[in-house]
Design a protein around this nucleic acid. Structure first.
Lengths: 152, 152
DNA sequence: GTCAGGTGGTTACAGATGTAACTGTCCATT
DNA sequence: AATGGACAGTTACATCTGTAACCACCTGAC
């Protein structure tokens, strides 16, 4: 019976992620009334330019319904606009409006500041080691292609 | 404009936490129809014995409504029972039933296996470095005591 | 051409969550 | 004894989320 939740890696990772995210989220929630899915979609569009909803989902690991709702919210804020694809009418291309790009610029400035604060906290080595750990996890546990066996 | 969500620490931490948690959560969801708050409450009670709902919340960083609901769910599963405090009738003491302890035992076996799997994945050094990073984050960002100034 | 199956995206629904308000209880002050 | 916080725990409500079903459209096999 030597188990302690406080030392269980999944729990600790969640705690750390919560702590780190919440503090940043507090900024965009308060300043721009943005949710996390909206921030992620904005960030994706801001850094890559025109994308489709599916691409945003792939880039920021969001479920397609989350993307759909985030896109609508950003559209209502007039921070992005949709345009139809000439060749395939299922597809919508999404672009930030000038207002959206302005917010994006402000947000990445905040993001950089925050990253620097975290870097100071962790130290250069600490940050590097933490990121190495995260990379290992990502590589090892990332969504594996579906197993196909004789039975399906 | 050199910002990429994929390299933003809060995002990466969330991703890693999701990956690591989901895989473990899949087990208790499938085997025992347990939610994460229920698993956390079970784990707290299993490792510390009799606790109150407030103590569970403090130990496992859960909002009191989450604890309240998890406790009810575990009670309905007959894995815990409540008993009133003789001296203070606001308080409920919570104990696992024998059935609850059995499930707890099975769960910590799974937890240990999973920890070992993660340890193999990360290597002894990697694990240590990752945990050091998490500890720094916890220490630096943990809920600070409320600031008290002249104005409040 | 047509039709089956797949894809991009939305939505109805059910479950999970946090905020705020609530109940019941305790305790310190009077 | 009475009363005004403070605290343990629950609940109503609004919001967010994922699942599954759905629509519109595309494509390849025939």
């Amino acid at each position: 019976m030597d188990f302690r939740l406080e030392t269980f890696l999944p729990y600790r990772l969640n705690q750390a992620a919560e702590l780190v995210s919440q503090r940043f989220a507090a900024q965009y929630r308060a300043r721009y009334r943005m949710t996390r899915p909206e921030w992620r979609a904005l960030a994706a569009l801001g850094s890559y330019g025109r994308m489709t909803a599916t691409e945003i989902g792939a880039n920021s690991s969001m479920h397609k319904t989350k993307v759909s709702r985030a896109v609508r919210a950003l559209e209502e804020k007039r921070w992005l606009k949709r345009s139809e694809d000439a060749a395939d009418r299922r597809i919508e291309h999404l672009d930030l409006t000038p207002a959206g790009r302005r917010i994006y610029g402000e947000m990445i400035a905040l993001a950089h500041e925050y990253e620097q604060e975290l870097a100071r906290l962790l130290g250069a080595d600490g940050l590097e080691q933490l990121e190495a750990g995260l990379a290992t996890i990502e590589a090892a546990l990332a969504v594996q292609p579906a197993r196909r066996g004789p039975s399906d």
